[in-house]
Structure formats: C-alpha cells, structure tokens
Write a protein that binds this DNA or RNA. Sequence first.
DNA 1: TATTGTTATACTCTATAACTATA
DNA 2: TATAGTTATAGAGTATAACAATA
Lengths: 152, 152
Amino acid sequence: MDTTSEQERYQALDLILELVVLLNADMSRRLAADQLTPARTTVLWTLRGRGPATQRQLAEALDVSARNITGLVDGLAGADLVSREPHPTDRRATLVTLTRRGTQLVETLEAEQREFASLLFDDMPAPRLHGIVDGLADVVGRLKAEGLKAHE
Amino acid sequence: MDTTSEQERYQALDLILELVVLLNADMSRRLAADQLTPARTTVLWTLRGRGPATQRQLAEALDVSARNITGLVDGLAGADLVSREPHPTDRRATLVTLTRRGTQLVETLEAEQREFASLLFDDMPAPRLHGIVDGLADVVGRLKAEGLKAHE
DNA sequence: TATTGTTATACTCTATAACTATA
DNA sequence: TATAGTTATAGAGTATAACAATA
C-alpha cells in the first residue's frame, strides 16, 4: 500500500497540533519556574547563538517591533540576565549582552533541553526515531516553502 | 544500526521545536485574516466539539481563569461569533453558544485545516507519512505521561 | 455556604506613532 | 535626512482578589 488516505493526512496534522499544545504548556511551565517567559527566553537564546547584539538586530531576529525589544530587554536587565553595553562605534545603539547569570541560565536551559530529548527519545527504537527526523525535516521544508510563497 | 545517538535525539527535538515556531506563525497569520486570535479560536473550537457550554466549563476546558473567559467571550460576542444564552436551570450561569456566523466560520477553518494537511502531506510517500504518525503518536504519549508525573 | 460570572487591578507581549539623540 | 532607541498609547491574553446574584 503506497498511497496515503485523507484521513491519515488529517491525523498527522492533528498529532502535530496536539504536540504544539503539549510542548507549549510544558515549556512555559519549566520557564516559569525560572521566572522566565517564552519571549524573554527567545532573546536569551538569540544572544547565546550570535553573541552581543543591538536592539535593532534583536528586533529583526525575533521579527518583532523595536518597542517590544525595549520591554523585553528591560525585563531581562531587571533580572540581571542581560546588560546594555555601549556600542563601540555608534553612540545611538546599545549592545545587549548576556551577564554571567544570563550565560549560566542559558547553559542550564540547554542542558535541560538535552535531558528532555533523552526523556522523549532514549528508549525509542532507532527506526522510529529516523522516521520522525526524516518526516519532520520534510514537513519543515514544505512549511518554509509555503511561508515564502505567502510572503510574495 | 539499531541505537540512537545523542545527536540524533537532540536533532529530533530541534525539528519539533522549529515546527512549533513555524506552525504558530502560520496559524496566527491565517487567523488574523479573519480578525481572530489563537485564544478566541480555541473557544470556538471547543464549542464546536462539545456544543454550548457555561463559562465555567470553558475555563476548565482551556485551563484558564474564569476572568479570562469573560474577556474572550466578550470579544467573540462583539464579533457576533458567539452569544450568551440563559442557562435553562441555573440563573447564575450563561450558555455560550455559537451563532450562525460562528458556526460558519468554524466550518471554514476546519476545511482550511484539511486543505493545509493536503498541502503538507499530499505528495509525501506513504512510508514517510506512516513514520511521522507512528513516531509522533509515541512522542505525544510520552509527553502526556510526563505531564501527569509533573502534576503529582 | 458554595458557585457563577463580573469588576478591579496588574503584568506580559504585541503594535503604531511621535520624539530624542546621534549618524 | 535617516537610524537607534524611548516615551506615549492601545489592545489582547493572562492572573488574583473582591463582590453580586443565585444555588
């Protein structure tokens, strides 16, 4: 049998949407324990990936307004997770930088994410894991192609 | 080769998280075109699934405060998508009910979701789709088991 | 007394527009 | 003149606490 049924396709999307809901709930719960929100965590994650950034660069990276970044950085700075450093050549700009506490927290989050991956997949048979990785990579590719079309 | 590597497990989780981001963006964009938000849409979806409900029941279904439901129903009623009907036996309660417009909108959304499933999966080889469905069902099961543990 | 929903209050995330300081 | 970030303002989603009407 090499054809997919409408029902099967709908079931696949349903599973994905259910997964979205469950993961959002799970992540929000974990983050709240560290007094973090998803939006602020995204800022920390971005800084970890690319190093210090101007607020303008963060706004573009998160696809969010400059005003919004001001608020997110205010919150993170208030928790001593990032600091606003002067930009070396442009006195209008600030370089948002992870503090030591921020760096430590991000490293903890990353470790927890690896633990979480272990929890979900550790005793999963290899063929099944391969099925997920191959299939989802395909779906993500299709979604991105769609997204590009939608932006035209 | 029948063992999974740490790297492969981390990659699987990464793909899932990327999917979450992409789907959230995609859905929000589609809903915004109909002047809808994710939270309000969840109310509509719940009413479609189980028929008229009291606000208290909606609060439990969405796992959200009663106050929050008041606001969501206010917004939906303002758009003529739901109405507050008197409860037949309890004069304290209201029965939130889909209007004709609300019913039509939910049906449209469901049709669009089916189209979306086609778009993602139509020309995907059957084994790959099976891999996704089996793998994700497994992951969802593990997540739910975790969630239950976390609530203890 | 307990429950349903609302008002009061507050915080986060989000947006646009006007403004300041610099380029 | 254009750009970086802030202040002003507004709306959605979320919460807790106090309150009114009803059970």
